[in-house]
Design a protein around this nucleic acid. Structure first.
Lengths: 171, 171
DNA sequence: ACCAAGTATCTTGACGGGCGAGATTATCGG
DNA sequence: CCGATAATCTCGCCCGTCAAGATACTTGGT
């Protein structure tokens, strides 16, 4: 499973792989813990973030697209939105042009919750990044962007392996 | 939520933050999709990986420690192990010294499954890393390692906010 | 212009299963 | 013998999937 190479570079590659895996798992756990702390689950939190994200870009999200993004069935999405709306985190708004569509907007409750999630995280990342020069951060960014592209391709490939042809959940 | 700073460095920090978030989400989805493809769920896959991981290091894991690592209750862990054992991915072994303890070992099924999960991922990451010099990878590693430390602290802080005093799920 | 069939979007209801909480059993250490 | 530890068992909740339905838009023929 782990190809342990003896050379320095091979060692480095293995280390970075572990870093990434640990980071992902920890990020997941943080979300889970924070969500539980506020009476919702990990998916709810992700959804709330997605709703704010979309709206702040000026392009409110619909249940359908939310489902694509979180990789959830339509039924789950409705239940999910019900929960969030009931808790006062978001609200529904029918599109006036196409009245089949529903736009999701965040409410004050939700905004505050998201802020209290991101604020401490932001502080921590800022602290870490302060230790690096612009050039170094540039390298990190290039690397991570490359990795994201590669992972996304892989995700689509795995998804395509079973059912429908890999819907690109654009993020 | 997003503090949009105008300077180059602020922009960079935001970009990297997004990279990391996207990577985590995608990694999660890959695990989910791959697991579903093979008749198990995301948790099962993580557990299988943890079992192999521990055993390859020469220190087989017990249900208790597995629960800590995945952040699961004892009941869930037992059910989880039941599923994996029934599917032929792992097997239980009572410790001869302390017969309360159960050691988890991977079976051939599980080993092959894990391999088929990691192999393509490894190829992709190798492809990406090939584009970077040793020095650049060194920077990436330093950065990610720092981030992991910071995230882990944060995770423990969030967990401590509700219930028990942050059990360090050592990885 | 109108109506019917087709398509898209969201909602509903039934169902299964993972997960958590607490009690129970088996074993170890003193 | 007694408290502590490790795993398991039992029960109930709730999330997510699936299939069917409701509503709204779109298209094509007459």
């Amino acid at each position: 499973m782990y190809r342990r190479r003896d050379d320095r570079r091979g060692q480095m590659i293995g280390d970075i792989t572990n870093d990434l895996r640990r980071y992902s798992v920890d990020a997941q756990h943080i979300g889970h813990a924070f969500a539980g702390l506020h009476g919702l689950n990990a998916t709810d939190l992700q959804a709330l973030i997605a709703v704010m994200d979309a709206e702040l870009v000026g392009d409110p999200i619909t249940p359908g697209r939310l489902g694509e993004r979180l990789n959830l069935s339509s039924g789950s999405v409705t239940a999910l939105i019900d929960r969030l709306e009931r808790a006062g985190h978001i609200r529904r708004d029918r599109d006036t042009a196409d009245r089949r569509k529903v736009f999701l907007h965040y409410a004050d409750r939700g905004a505050e919750l998201a802020r209290s999630f991101f604020a401490p995280l932001g502080r921590r990342t800022d602290d870490v990044m302060a230790r690096y020069t612009d050039e170094e951060l540039e390298v990190v960014h290039r690397f991570m962007a490359d990795m994201v592209v590669s992972m996304r391709e892989h995700r689509d490939a795995v998804r395509a392996a079973r059912g429908g042809p890999a819907k690109r959940a654009t993020d």
